[in-house]
């Protein structure tokens, strides 16, 4: 589940000076724990495993150790995977006559620019066993967005983008 921030609607004066102001959508993953607390949780999972394994190994059952090691490696991997997704984000904003899509997925960032007057918002509602699809399409290429959003957030984001882009175009024209 993600968290979506939509910027506040700007004043009418600012809208008149720049028709694209106010079109800004940011999605980030929802995290209940801070990275620091998450590290403590991971340690809190690994330490009992290690202590138990050491005690049992000390009694002669040392073959417990490799399995404990494997499990701790798995826990560390899982938490590192979570941490790698902490900085993920996706923003859609307008700048001049361009719609700018910026996103970062597990440290890999990309920026795509679309002509504001050509870009289409593609939305396909969710079906049974199928998530909804939100994408930006331009010049024959489709760029899915909204993977950090919930279903309702994707739907709201589609409506928001359609409305705001329409306003921006009208103002620019």
């Amino acid at each position: 589940m993600g968290s979506v921030a939509i910027t506040a609607v700007p004043s009418e004066d600012r809208k008149r000076s720049d028709p694209t102001v106010g079109l800004s959508l940011t999605a980030r993953p929802n995290r209940s724990l801070s990275p620091a607390v998450r590290n403590w949780v991971a340690a809190g999972m690994c330490v009992p495993v290690l202590v138990v394994a050491l005690v049992v190994a000390a009694q002669g059952a040392w073959l417990v150790m490799p399995f404990a090691g494997l499990e701790m490696a798995m826990i560390v991997f899982a938490f590192r995977w979570l941490r790698a997704g902490d900085s993920d984000y996706e923003t859609v904003s307008a700048s001049g006559h361009e719609l700018v899509l910026r996103r970062s997925v597990r440290g890999r960032t990309e920026e795509l620019r679309f002509n504001l007057h050509w870009v289409q918002v593609v939305f396909e509602p969710a079906g049974i066993a199928r998530k909804s699809v939100l994408a930006l399409r331009s010049h024959g290429r489709v760029h899915p967005i909204g993977h950090l959003m919930t279903e309702v957030e994707r739907t709201a984001a589609a409506d928001y983008l359609v409305t705001r882009i329409r306003h921006a175009r009208a103002a620019a024209a």
Binding site: V122, E124, P125, R137, I165, R166
Partner: peptide, 21 residues
């Protein structure tokens, strides 16, 4: 500007990738 629903281009990327049965 338009919002397209169930567009073939999207199908190519996602919708048909969802397995059934």
């Amino acid at each position: 500007m338009q919002a397209t629903h169930s567009h073939p281009a999207v199908h190519d990327h996602h919708a048909h990738a969802q397995p059934t049965g």
